[in-house]
Nucleic acid binder design. Structure first.
Lengths: 181, 181
DNA sequence: CGATTGTTTGATGAAAGTCAAGTACCGTGG
DNA sequence: CCACGGTACTTGACTTTCATCAAACAATCG
């Protein structure tokens, strides 16, 4: 059970034709794969996006800790439910939202998670190591289409995105774009 | 923590514009909402499709059982991982597969789950209470498009679907249609 | 029987994918 | 220092997939 200490990673599944779907981005503080607590064989793979440092904990030891310590169990439960909730949101996004909404929501979700952990580089600004093909694989789109929609966001001055840095320039309008339905 | 005894139900999220996304179909033997084990407040809602009977277990009692009994813990872990795996598959389907593939995979998944539980009405035949709008809400499509693709499957004699009963006529070809990429 | 809900079908439109060409940005080696 | 290659990004033309709209039909139920 590794936990990310620094850097970004992703977990994804690969399909037969070479396309892939990213299940989640892993930020500092995230448990790489909470399902590993139960199931040793992973169903997806994990890949570093930036240089990543992590610490690994062993399952048996964690189980002992959890059995002995109710607050550890609660912490574990929080991780589980949070992960579950994020998976459900992704299902809704992929099933029922437009390309622009999916991209905007992905960005907002990442910014919020970094804010919670105090990893921002400004009020609404973060280091943003994702390539457009990462965004495409996470939102179920093509890199070309992602490029067009990001250009559109820039043209409307909702975000600034350059040199691996992202800022939300117009939070209200950008949130609106993320919630159009 | 209710468990379905008979009938079909669904869990879903509703969006602001009235469209909805079905997260999973609940068949006899399914735990309605494993996340309820941790989190009392549900993030989605549950709805009956047919007449449903269920038994409810209370969280506190289950926790005691799990703490005392390692095999109960293992059973719980199985439910959790299975649910997680199904969520991941749905993400991949919605993100990276065509409409026809999504529908075929949904049907195959349901048939397999009923087979595991011995709830089939024939070798490759099941009672099928879903309306086309259920299929649409589960696959992120419109009912109209679902109708067209089901007609296509029928025309190619891959399935028979009438009077709330479904049979897979050509398993090999139907599986191929579910796995085109 | 009428009313409601579900399904089919066709015509049309919008969203996203594909293809292709061109640009910018490195890192490498001469 | 600059040429070279590779990767990422941009942009436009065109195609495909799926949504929308509308009309007709079928089934179900009070």
């Amino acid at each position: 059970m590794p936990i990310i200490c620094s850097g970004w990673a992703l977990s994804a599944v690969m399909l037969a034709d070479g396309s892939r779907q990213i299940l989640s981005f892993l930020l500092p503080g995230d448990v790489v794969s909470p399902c590993l607590m139960f199931e040793p064989k992973p169903t997806c793979f994990v890949e570093a996006i930036t240089t990543v440092t992590y610490r690994a904990f062993d399952r048996a030891g964690l189980w002992q800790l959890v059995a002995a310590n109710p607050s550890a169990m609660e912490a574990m439960a929080r991780v589980w439910t949070q992960q579950r909730r994020r998976a459900e949101e992704l299902i809704v996004d992929l099933g029922r939202r437009s390309a622009a909404e999916r991209i905007a929501r992905l960005i907002l979700g990442l910014v919020e998670r970094l804010q919670e952990r105090g990893l921002t580089s400004g009020p609404l600004e973060i280091d943003f190591p994702l390539r457009q093909h990462h965004i495409a694989d996470a939102t179920g789109l093509t890199p070309v289409h992602v490029s067009k929609l990001l250009s559109e966001f820039r043209r409307r001055e909702l975000i600034r995105l350059s040199e691996r840095s992202l800022a939300i320039l117009d939070p209200a309008a950008f949130r609106a774009a993320a919630n159009m339905r």
